[in-house]
C-alpha cells in the first residue's frame, strides 16, 4: 500500500494539472486558447499551472507566430508522460485496493 501512494505524483495533485496532462496525453500539441476552452479556466489560473508544469519539465512551451498573432503551444515531454502514467497507475491501484 505504501508503494502505491509513493507513486502518486505530488505535481499532479490539482485537478487542473490533471486536466492539462489529460489533454496533452492524447494531443500532440495544444495551444493556450484550446486548453482554456477545454478546461474552462481563466487565463491567469491556467497560466500559473502551466508555468508549474513547465518548471518541472513535464511540459514544454513553444512560441511562434501564426500570421501576426503570437501563439503559444504546449506539449508533454517524455518524462512528463511517464510521470503521468505512474500517477494513473497509482490512482488505479488505489481504487482496486479499496
Amino acid at each position: 500500500m505504501k508503494n502505491l501512494i509513493a507513486n502518486l505524483q505530488k505535481v499532479f495533485d490539482s485537478r487542473i494539472r490533471l486536466g492539462i496532462m489529460s489533454v496533452l496525453m492524447v494531443n500532440e500539441s495544444v495551444d493556450f486558447n484550446a486548453l482554456k476552452e477545454l478546461l474552462e479556466l481563466t487565463d491567469g489560473n491556467l497560466a500559473s499551472h502551466l508555468k508549474a508544469l513547465e518548471q518541472q519539465e513535464i511540459i514544454v512551451v513553444s512560441k511562434q507566430f501564426v500570421g501576426r498573432k503570437p501563439s503559444t503551444t504546449y506539449r508533454a515531454t517524455p518524462h512528463g508522460k511517464e510521470l503521468f502514467q505512474q500517477h494513473l497507475a497509482a490512482l488505479e491501484a488505489l481504487i482496486s485496493n479499496k
Binding site: 489529460s22 478546461l39 488505489l94 481504487i95
Partner: peptide, 23 residues
C-alpha cells in the same frame, strides 16, 4: 484516508477530458 484526492473521480475526469479533447 491517506490522500486528499479522490482517485475514482480523478480517473473519471481524466477519461472525460481525454475523450473531449481528442474527439
Amino acid at each position: 484516508k491517506t490522500v486528499a484526492t479522490n482517485p475514482k473521480e480523478d480517473l473519471q475526469a481524466i477519461r472525460d477530458i481525454m475523450e473531449r479533447s481528442s474527439k
